[in-house]
Write a protein that binds this DNA or RNA. Structure first.
Lengths: 165, 165
DNA sequence: TATGAAAGAACCTGGCC
DNA sequence: GGCCAGGTTCTTTCATA
């Protein structure tokens, strides 16, 4: 599906504030409220927008510790096998297979370092895991999924728009 | 600040759908709409909820490639120095200092592998960067900031609630 | 195909208990 | 925390370009 400038501006507005009214978004992008709603509905249907969520401060919920864990897996372990197994550990908030020495990289959130240790032990005991290499996060510098550290929505690279119709 | 079970349930509802109405949330957690609004207002004021955002499919916007980059920095580079410098690169969507051999770990999003290469070059040319070690993401298995891979909000560890008042 | 205007329904918000 | 009322927003329909 093709996104034009208006679609991108609308997405930008919703990334900044998912509870903005259609009228507010319309004023910002130069469209009526009903036109904005139609586009948002379409963006959701086509999957460009997958939902709306609250941004939460993990520490406020007790998640004060995070770590990254590299996974080294047995000979021919498939990505989906890793995904299914890893998905059973709720502390794993993000995971992917990667190039390089390790096979996968996990991002985990825990209540404290002891909790991190227990999670790593639990993951290391998965049958396909040969070894792990983990790093505790010391301080978070940037946390901006699709939002720059300056607070602008991260819609197009370099503020250019190579994907605009 | 202390969060009780109702606060956590409300946060869970908003993590799942930030555009849910107060009445809907109230029905789910067993509270009136106005009571929910009062709690949400308070959760925002105290910083437990930092905002509301749209979940976007990066590929739909052209961000089809991602990579992780380990940063090895000069002798005594401060975390804030790294943060400020790294914040100038919009492709860096997440960054933190970590334990282990590397000093920092960056998560970058780009349009393609060539773009990844350019970003790494740009970052490697920062004065305090001694060397980098990067991994391209092959396939994403889990992407669930405060949401489990099963779609449940990731509010308390192990579905226990050690932080409930 | 996409837009703006309009109207009734639904929702938000603040005051009061 | 619940209830209620007035103002706002959502959602759909309709006419238009």
């Amino acid at each position: 599906m093709e996104l034009d400038r208006l679609d991108r501006d609308i997405i930008g507005a919703l990334v900044e504030d998912a509870r903005a009214t259609y009228a507010e978004i319309g004023q910002r992008v130069g469209l009526s409220a009903s036109a904005v709603k139609r586009r948002v509905d379409r963006l959701r249907e086509t999957g460009a927008i997958t939902g709306f969520t609250a941004r939460v401060e993990p520490a406020a919920l007790g998640w004060t510790t995070e770590a990254y864990v590299e996974l080294f897996c047995a000979g021919k372990t498939s990505p989906s096998e890793i995904g299914v197994a890893i998905g059973r550990h709720p502390e794993v908030v993000s995971a992917c297979t990667i190039t390089g020495e390790a096979d996968a990289l996990l991002h985990i959130r825990a209540t404290d370092v002891r909790h991190v240790e227990r999670v790593i032990e639990r993951i290391a005991s998965e049958p396909f895991v040969v070894r792990t290499k983990s790093s505790i996060v010391l301080s978070r510098l940037i946390e901006a999924p699709l939002m720059t550290s300056r607070g602008e929505p991260f819609i197009a690279p370099h503020n250019e728009s190579p994907f605009i119709a």
